[in-house]
Design a protein around this nucleic acid. Structure first.
Lengths: 259, 259
DNA sequence: CGAATCCTTGAACACCTTCAACAGGGGTGG
DNA sequence: CCACCCCTGTTGAAGGTGTTCAAGGATTCG
């Protein structure tokens, strides 16, 4: 199998010792910078599946980095329906969409046991007067988020159900790969319903396409466990959308994460 | 009629004298800060309809603020098709999606005669060491962009054609309103094809729905010129999507601009 | 073991797309 | 100034893709 969970529950690991270091905020910072950043980060007890990191409408105070586990973010419409806006893996930041306002526009909920680093935003602001690399880096991350959303947007408006699911699975693969996990097999921490919601498809459609992909030998799936058997076919299925004329290191979707 | 074009061609207007001041970057800056920002801004000759501000793949050097006219941004897929990612009105920034990378991920093209302020990013970076409000403000703008994309995403995945077009027209209305123009009538600077592309709909569908809305008395449209006759019905048509449990001042779509 | 939830599968239907033809400006050139 | 053309926009009819509705099967957890 694969290892989607770190073997040790990290509770007091410093940024400098964190294996996610390069995926997270501290890129381009030296040891003393790291120590300072470390000083403002709050490490809370891990969230259990279903628990909330923050809820829509709550005052915005902090952004969060996922250290282990996974989190989904979603908006509740006034009629009570959910709209999943993203899935967040270790090394990814949470709450960036709140920076422009006073309150969180979405809710963040753990899909499985997950530990987060909380980074109080006002302290981050005071910090970047002494660490010039910090705002630049945060903007890079926000820029990636923008790219991600635009890619997803394109997926939604120009692709059919097969292409969407293929791109989604490849994107997850890439993100797991970056974190040192297998790109060929992984466990989905989110339900079919979440996937469908995220991709703008009915659950039934997601299910049908999983079956179809399996019948065609592109992948094997059994409940949460997915093996990508024919990456090439999958990439072909994902369509011309991805390996575009894109500037930099776009593997299957832009450097920005799709979910 | 309405006034979508400033009467004077602005060529050497200082930030402090710019009527778009509050929509643009300089929010929360004092006179001396403004002067400094002013010093790095480059004002080029206006773009003619069809001219490019920058093209996908070009090195990222600057972000741009639209001063007058309108601009569309789009991605070219490898098979040569266009994907419109946004429309930009006066006071809105351009090129934020390039901050995370080395090159522009999209192309920006004038929909009509348009003048832009070019803001070299490296100079902006040096500037924000002396103007702490600057990175904060830029992040707010980027955060809005993220919110905008997420809203649009929701529109794409959960709404039908009528809801999309209604939300789109209301969003434009709101953005014109903020700039002091009429919220009830305006000229579309983009083609039906661009609208359809942007909303993930076929041109024919856009056309049909315009006709349907007109037949129902919701609006009147003739070529580019649109009058919103029944805002309430239009809002109802746009659906529960917008006036959500949203945190702050969400008029019809979040404070973030939809296009 | 039973209940609840998640996932799968089938069939009918709705919505939008595609294909096709035509209308109407706006510009150019005669 | 008018004729012509091209491009954009409109309208109609057929077809496809995904949704909805409905039911059954599988897994998990109390």
């Amino acid at each position: 199998m694969q290892k989607n969970e770190p073997s040790v529950l990290p509770h007091k690991v410093a940024c400098s010792d964190c294996t996610l270091f390069q995926l997270c905020l501290p890129v381009g910072m030296d040891a003393s910078d790291l120590a300072r950043l470390d000083g403002i980060i709050q490490r809370r007890r891990p969230l259990q599946r279903g628990e909330f990191a923050f809820r829509m409408g709550e005052d915005f105070h902090s952004i969060y980095a996922v250290r282990s586990g996974s989190v989904k973010t979603f908006i509740l419409t006034e009629d009570g329906r959910e709209q999943v806006t993203g899935f967040h893996l270790p090394g990814e930041l949470l709450g960036l969409d709140a920076i422009s306002g006073e309150a969180h526009p979405c809710t963040a909920r753990a899909l499985e046991t997950a530990s987060l680093c909380e980074i109080p935003f006002d302290q981050l602001e005071t910090l970047w007067t002494v660490i010039p690399a910090l705002p630049r880096q945060l903007m890079r991350v926000m820029g990636k988020e923008i790219l991600h959303d635009q890619t997803l947007l394109m997926l939604m408006s120009k692709s059919n159900a097969e292409e969407r699911l293929a791109a989604y699975l490849l994107n997850l693969s890439m993100r797991f790969g970056r974190r040192g996990y297998s790109v060929r097999e992984y466990n989905l921490s989110m339900s079919r319903s979440d996937i469908g919601n995220y991709l703008g498809l009915a659950v039934e459609t997601v299910s049908r396409i999983f079956t179809r992909f399996q019948d065609e030998g592109v992948l094997s799936v059994q409940r949460k466990y997915v093996q990508l058997l024919d990456m090439e076919r999958l990439k072909a299925l994902a369509g011309a959308l991805d390996h575009g004329t894109a500037p930099t290191a776009f593997s299957c979707l832009p450097a920005a994460d799709l979910g």
